[in-house]
Design a protein around this nucleic acid. Structure first.
Length: 653
RNA sequence: GCCGACAUAGCUCAGUUGGCAGAGCAGCUGAUUCGUAAUCAGCAGGUCCUCAGUUCAAAUCUGAGUGUCGGCUCCA
């Protein structure tokens, strides 16, 4: 065996070095001091490793520097370790559990009787940053499972011991320990070279979290935080959080008169006049779109006898999510549960199936597409409610499509075409996720053969569409696999909105059939699909996407006429009336405020156009429009503005 | 549901140790008639989330409830 190893760099070049050289030394000697200084961790043959790792065999080497998002991820995990060590110092008796890095930072879960207070958090943050500055190296060590167990048992770390037993049960023989400044945790790694390289740590919140996320387990104390290599990046992150807060639909919605909540109806929005307008614009646009594309709108009852849910399968695991209704004519001596023979519908599908069954269906009718926007009610856990994104009453642009298996791929493509039209209109990018059967058979209905068929058909459709997609194994609905669409808004945040779900189970349960060209009965397949998802959630997303400044076609109020003084109210009123007569949503500010104040009010209301009307305009049948944000469109004849509105204030679909 | 924080005028927020509930904006009235982000003056506005308790006295202290907010596996 040669005492040299061959190292292949990402550009394809190869270098030889002494066997056993550490990654860091290799970089320093064979690449350059600059890279060695910027290096945070490395990958050997694609495996993330510490810079201290020895290169024992020929390998591909990739150095990950602090400019890489991957390094930041590692640094945040480093920060979680440092914070945990500080917490154990500051609060003796606190047990550690796990502390991964997450999207925008990290968290660490601690087992402790007393929750951390915001003041504790400040102390922990200060001490963590001090520990970072102390610049302790991260030291890696591999020990036997027995040694690891002895170590953490000796420290009384019950949760760590439980994790080690789990890892051992999976067949691991050794455990990797990481130490810094005398504190030890086990961890897959890699870590950065030393705590000083982390940069700056900021703790953001404390929260309760169940051990392993299961509400039957003990409640742990979770501390959330984030870390950045420098203060400037942290400040940029905090500024972004400010922007997110400013756009929060829960703030903007009530402020703009879109919607509100009342404690008498937790989780169910009141749609105020402006919000109802916005809702209706979206609803009418979607109605036109689906009507043009072969869908038929139907309306079905909100309240159903439980026999329907027994048939659909909702009366099983889903029952806890339904609002049950007492039939006042039922026997009052019966237990409450038995008197609740009705429920508000949580989904539209079963009632669509009932319509399907109201006649004998021919293959010539397929695909048969029903569309409904009825209100749905789901009893979401009180603690999970929030704004318009998690509600108990909502409306979906919901469709169920009955078709033959051979039509699935084409139909999925048709749906995706509609999605492109709709999301394109808002400038929202989307990506696709394919979710397969829930792993636990108790969480799904239908046998494996059905699931195999459903997953196979949907995947085939996906491949025909040709858009990139990701697999989300195990995340399907209880009745079938699905394609979820994730949209990215103007702040780069991702939202899951529409969905296409394939359902082989419902046609069985409801005994849905059609007569084929062979004059025999066959089972149709059902596709569940929504494009907006729920109107509530979609309006929340749009509100934040546009920061409340909706484009002219969507805005509840499309233009406001403001008069320069009382002398021009006649022309101002005429302008408002003529535009209103053309179907646009217009109002008039003829108050005796000064022009500047009127402009300000109009800007604060985020109205797309403010039309200034004064002496110049009154004499020339003209208006001077100003766009929201300040762009002055200069004086133009009213007819020219009508032209402009026709282009911008008309729904694009 | 569970853990934690919070709840004062329509909104944003002050309110000391338990001692008469405040400001700005919005609203109303009047004056002003004004050219692209706040004209001036006056007035009015309160179940201090709800219910109970402690106290001579509660927005303030205690308990219960309601609602809202941050969370409740992105798994060493």
């Amino acid at each position: 065996m040669s005492d040299l190893v061959k190292v292949t760099l990402p550009d394809g070049s190869q270098k030889e070095a002494a066997r056993g050289i550490s990654v860091l030394d290799f970089v320093k000697v064979h690449i350059g001091a600059g890279l060695a200084k910027a290096a945070y961790f490395a990958k050997l043959d694609g495996q993330p490793v510490d810079l201290t790792r020895a290169i024992d065999a020929d390998a591909r080497l990739e150095v990950v520097t602090t400019r890489s998002p991957e390094a930041l991820e590692v640094a945040r995990h480093d920060a979680a370790h440092v914070m945990a060590s500080v917490v154990q110092q500051l609060f003796p008796g606190t047990q550690v559990t796990i502390g991964p890095s997450i999207d925008d930072g990290f968290y660490y879960d601690f087992a402790r009787e007393k929750p951390f207070t915001p003041e504790d958090l400040e102390r922990i943050e200060a001490a963590t940053n001090a520990a970072v500055k102390a610049d302790h190296p991260f030291l890696r060590e591999e020990v036997s499972m027995e040694a690891a167990l002895a170590l953490f048992e000796g420290q009384g770390e019950k949760y760590k011991v439980e994790i080690i037993r789990d890892i051992a049960a999976k067949g691991a023989r050794t455990l990797t320990l990481y130490r810094h400044g005398g504190w030890v945790d086990f961890c897959l790694g890699p870590h950065g070279p030393s705590t000083g390289r982390i940069g700056v740590v900021k703790l953001t919140s404390v929260a309760g979290a169940y051990w392993r996320g299961d509400s039957r387990n003990a409640m742990l104390q979770r501390i959330y935080g984030t870390a950045f290599f420098d203060k400037k990046a942290l400040d940029a992150h905090l500024a972004r959080l400010e922007e997110v807060k400013k756009r929060d639909h829960r703030k903007l919605g009530p402020a703009l008169g879109l919607f509100a909540f009342h404690e008498y109806a937790p989780g169910s929005p009141f749609w105020l006049p402006a919000g109802t307008t916005l809702f209706n614009v979206l609803q009418e646009a979607m109605r036109r779109l689906v009507n043009r594309n072969g869908y038929q709108e139907v309306k079905t009852p909100l309240l159903f006898n439980k026999r329907l849910w027994e048939m659909s399968g909702h009366w099983g695991p889903y029952k806890k999510n339904m609002f049950l209704v007492v039939d006042s004519e039922s026997d009052e001596t019966l237990p409450l549960d038995e008197r609740c023979s009705f429920s508000l519908k949580p989904m539209n599908c079963p009632s669509h199936h009932l319509i399907y069954k109201m006649g004998r269906r021919s293959y010539r009718e397929l695909p048969l597409r029903y569309y409904t926007t009825d209100a749905l009610h789901r009893n979401e856990a009180s603690g999970s409610l929030g704004g318009l994104t998690r509600v108990r009453q909502f409306e979906q642009d919901d469709s169920h499509i009955y078709l033959m298996e051979s039509q699935i791929a084409a139909e999925v493509r048709r749906i995706v075409d509609l999605m492109k039209i709709v999301y394109g209109a808002f400038g929202l990018q989307f990506s696709l996720m394919f979710s397969t059967r829930p792993p636990n058979p108790a969480d799904r209905i239908g046998d494996d053969t059905l699931w195999d068929k459903a997953e196979g058909a949907l995947q085939a459709a996906l491949e025909q569409i040709g858009l990139p997609w990701q697999l989300n194994a195990g995340d399907g609905a209880f009745y079938g696999p699905k394609i979820d669409f994730t949209v990215t808004d103007s702040l780069g945040r991702q939202w899951q909105t529409c969905t296409i779900q394939l359902d082989y189970a419902a046609p069985e349960r409801f005994d849905l059939t059609y007569v084929g060209d062979d004059n025999a009965e066959h089972r149709p397949v059902v596709i569940h699909r929504a494009i907006y998802g729920s109107f509530e959630r979609f309006i929340a997303i749009l509100t934040e996407h546009y920061a409340g400044a909706f484009p002219a076609w969507l805005a509840p109020l499309q233009a406001r006429v403001v008069t320069v003084s009382e002398r021009f109210v006649d022309w101002g009123r005429a302008v408002a009336e003529r535009l209103t007569a053309r179907g646009w949503r217009i109002d008039l500010d003829d108050s005796n405020d000064k022009l500047g104040a009127k402009i300000r009010n109009s800007e604060l209301a985020k109205i797309p156009f403010t039309l200034v009307v004064g002496e110049k305009e009154a004499g020339a049948q003209a208006v001077s429009p100003r766009r929201h944000g300040g762009e002055d469109l200069k004086t133009m004849p009213l007819d020219a503005f009508v032209e402009l509105m026709s282009r911008e204030a008309t729904p694009p679909y």
